[in-house]
Computed example of a mutant assay.
Amino acid sequence: MTVKNRVVTLAGEYSDRLKKAIAERVEDMKSDDFSHYLIYQVLGVSEKEGRLIDLYQNKGRFLYKYAGSFLEEATKMCFGERFPQSGPARIPNTQGQRPKTFEIDCLVGKDALEIKWKDATTDGDHITKEHSRIRAIVDAGYRPIRVMFYYPNRMQAIRIQEALETLYNGVGGQYYHGDAAWGYVAQRTGIDLKRILQGICGK
């Protein structure tokens, strides 16, 4: 089976799992306690609108989770096709006690890829944690590479990403986002993942 067919199959599997998870959550929500809608109404949000907000907030959590997992797995498929020995790996944390190890999403030779579909975090501690992970990767003899397909929109989250890019560059690593991320995958693997995904959507 070609990589394209495998990605298409994977997309179908994730779509089915997402629909199932959302349907189960929506069913569970029917027995939820809605007494907090009083506060919504105090703040000018109607009960109807409050129900829709809660509904789509729950749907959104599942969507973000499955979107990230799908794109990471599809990206790994591309690298696995071009580099059969590539795959996830764990390295010791040489920068602190916790966690004991760090996970590398996809190790390709000496390149340690961190694959993100989108990172909208605004937590400043994220920089500290990522710095420790990056240093541990370097200590293990690898080059950290961040591949993030979608850049955040909010300024605070953008600043976090700018700081992370500086960290990667400071240790001789690489940081790709947006079109550069799609291009990096295509250039390294010879597979145009974005075009495959667009084909699934009929674009």
Rank of each mutant, 00 (worst) to 15 (best):
Thr2Tyr: 00
Val7Trp: 00
Thr9Glu: 09
Leu10Pro: 00
Ser15Ala: 14
Lys19Ile: 15
Ala21His: 10
Ala21Gly: 05
Glu24Cys: 10
Met29Trp: 11
Lys30Asp: 05
Asp32Trp: 11
Asp32Ile: 10
Phe34Thr: 14
His36Ser: 12
Gly44Phe: 02
Ser46Val: 02
Glu47Pro: 01
Glu47Thr: 12
Gln57Asn: 15
Lys59Gly: 09
Gly60Thr: 09
Gly60Met: 11
Phe62Pro: 11
Cys78Ala: 14
Glu81Thr: 06
Pro84Gly: 08
Arg90Tyr: 12
Asn93Leu: 10
Lys100Ser: 08
Ile104Phe: 01
Val108His: 01
Val108Cys: 06
Leu113Trp: 01
Asp119Trp: 00
His126Gly: 06
Lys129Tyr: 03
His131Tyr: 08
Ser132Arg: 08
Ala136Ile: 05
Ile137His: 01
Ile137Arg: 01
Ile137Met: 11
Val138Pro: 05
Gly141Tyr: 07
Arg146Cys: 14
Val147His: 00
Val147Cys: 11
Phe149Ile: 01
Phe149Ser: 04
Asn153Trp: 03
Met155Lys: 08
Gln156Lys: 14
Arg159Phe: 07
Gln161Ser: 06
Glu162Val: 10
Leu164Phe: 05
Glu165Asn: 03
Tyr168Pro: 03
Tyr176Asn: 08
Ala180Ser: 12
Trp182Met: 10
Gly183Ile: 00
Tyr184His: 12
Val185Gly: 02
Thr189Tyr: 00
Thr189Trp: 02
Gly190Ile: 09
